[in-house]
């Protein structure tokens, strides 16, 4: 899987309330409506700045807080192709893979807002075209790569009728 887009940079410990506020997520299952409010409490205009394929780039512990799957879904439906962070909170990490949103763990300290990035998930490399640098990414555990390659956990279950992770 190869992904290409521009970096939108956020800090450490971005929690799921910031990704999609509780006041919206309880109201609807319409993800394109929720997507309009993604990261709203941190940047009210964020949704308007996204071009399809862009990346959210963050520091440590991205997605901490609640178990709401609306968080990766709202990001995905806003047009973001992947989240790149120093580390992820575990429930968000699972939810992202289950819903087919690639999550990429690597050192993000040298990525600046607006940098043009290209990710090769199989090769495990993130290229920063703006700065002419390459960053190694932490490979996904094989189990997660399998679920992601199946298109998420729903598709995995449709294919196998249950967990088939060996």
């Amino acid at each position: 899987m190869r992904l290409k887009g521009k970096a939108h940079k956020f800090g450490d410990d971005i929690n799921t309330d910031y990704i999609i506020s509780g006041k919206y997520k309880f109201k609807t299952l319409d993800m394109s409506e929720l997507a309009r409010h993604v990261m709203e409490d941190l940047d009210p205009d964020f949704y308007k700045k996204i071009r399809p394929g862009d990346f959210i780039v963050a520091g440590r512990n991205f997605g901490c807080g609640s178990s709401r799957e609306q968080a990766p879904l709202a990001i995905k439906h806003a047009g973001i192709s992947a989240v790149i962070a120093g580390s992820f909170a575990r429930i968000f990490y699972r939810n992202a893979i289950n819903t087919g949103l690639p999550v990429i763990e690597c050192d993000t300290s040298a990525i600046e807002p607006g940098d043009e990035l290209e990710v090769d998930l199989e090769a495990g490399v993130l290229g920063n075209h703006t700065r002419n640098t390459e960053i190694r990414i932490t490979p996904l555990p094989p189990v997660m790569l399998k679920i992601l390659n199946d298109g998420g956990l729903v598709a995995h279950f449709r294919k196998y009728g249950g967990f088939h992770l060996d």
């Binding site: 609640s66 178990s67 709401r68 939810n95 956990l153 729903v154 279950f157 249950g162």
Partner: peptide, 28 residues
């Protein structure tokens, strides 16, 4: 729900998951 970990005080391994994991467990 992320605060499912509360039941750990009863010596249970209890953990929060998202909706898709929940659906998978409801079935399997």
């Amino acid at each position: 729900d992320s605060h499912t970990c509360t039941y750990g005080a009863l010596n249970a391994f209890a953990t929060g998951v998202g909706s898709t994991d929940l659906a998978a467990a409801m079935i399997s």
